[in-house]
């Protein structure tokens, strides 16, 4: 159950994708997500998927890891697919019985939606697999720094995110430990109806909250002891570099916007 959570997990490597500046990766990922929803026919969708596959190949992250990250969203994909098949109408009607109608457009929309969600998850997994959480939030902080002018404390937000991401593995480990300790005392977490299962979580959640609060206090103390006082005047150990590689990849993704628009118009839209 817990091992399925792969958000914020880093997969060490030394590939081109790993070395790319996090700001560039963030921009590309957002662009990709927008583009995947701009695809209106199979050709443009295939084009985007090829790009994604190429990025994965370059990153050298095993494909197995992406299947793992897809596992938790399988129900969502199935749910939206079914919903789209029955609710979207248009195109040729393939099947009709009382109030149920299935049309070609419904099937295409369902298919596109499923592929889009999967691509969405895979692309964001690629980002987190190839970027350490610290790099990611640092990049985000730099990208959003113009917001400082609007008196939004970007640094504080980025720090909160860094800490949250940083503590995901710790919490997972903690939950694992507590679960094992309670299982060793015969706790039954796997059987029973929903109510019984919810009740079985109490022996895990109470110690988890207690230790999380304790940990938060300790962390705040430790940070204050090292004179942390927010973002003002802070320098970085690792300078980010937006060099040639970054410029070229971002440029290429901008070019692919044009490509998708072109393909959409060239071959006709089907949804």
């Amino acid at each position: 159950m817990i091992k399925d959570i792969t958000i914020g997990q880093y997969f060490p490597g030394n590939s081109f994708v790993h070395k790319l500046d996090p700001r560039a990766k963030l921009i590309i990922t957002v662009l990709f997500m927008v583009l995947i929803f701009m695809c209106k026919n199979f050709y443009s969708l295939a084009f985007m998927l090829v790009l994604l596959a190429a990025a994965i190949a370059v990153s050298k992250v095993p494909f197995k890891m992406f299947f793992k990250s897809l596992k938790p969203i399988v129900p969502i994909v199935i749910f939206t697919t079914i919903l789209n098949i029955f609710y979207v109408t248009g195109g040729t009607v393939l099947f009709s019985w009382r109030f149920i109608t299935i049309s070609t457009k419904g099937i295409f929309t369902a298919l596109f939606m499923a592929v889009r969600i999967v691509a969405l998850i895979i692309s964001s997994s690629l980002l987190t697999y190839t970027t350490t959480p610290t790099m990611l939030t640092d990049g985000l902080e730099r990208l959003l720094s113009p917001l400082n002018k609007l008196h939004i404390q970007v640094h504080t937000l980025a720090m909160i995110m860094t800490l949250a991401l940083r503590f995901i593995p710790t919490l997972i480990e903690e939950v694992d430990k507590i679960m094992n300790a309670q299982k060793a005392r015969g706790a039954d977490l796997e059987s029973g109806n929903i109510l019984q299962r919810a009740k079985a979580l109490v022996p895990i959640l109470v110690p988890l909250f207690v230790s999380s609060i304790r940990r938060a206090y300790e962390l705040a103390f430790a940070m204050e002891c090292r004179c942390y006082s927010g973002g003002e005047g802070r320098t970085r150990m690792k300078k980010m570099k937006f060099g040639l590689n970054e410029s070229v990849t971002v440029l290429l993704s901008v070019v692919s916007i044009a490509a998708v628009v072109l393909i959409n118009n060239l071959f006709g839209k089907i949804i």
């Binding site: 430990k177 507590i178 094992n180 300790a181 309670q182 060793a184 005392r185 015969g186 109490v202 022996p203 895990i204 109470v206 110690p207 207690v210 230790s211």
Partner: peptide
């Protein structure tokens, strides 16, 4: 129940 296991820092399991 036959093999009782008590983990390191077991006080964090109290609830």
């Amino acid at each position: 129940f036959t093999v009782g296991l008590c983990f390191q820092y077991p006080e964090y399991q109290l609830f």
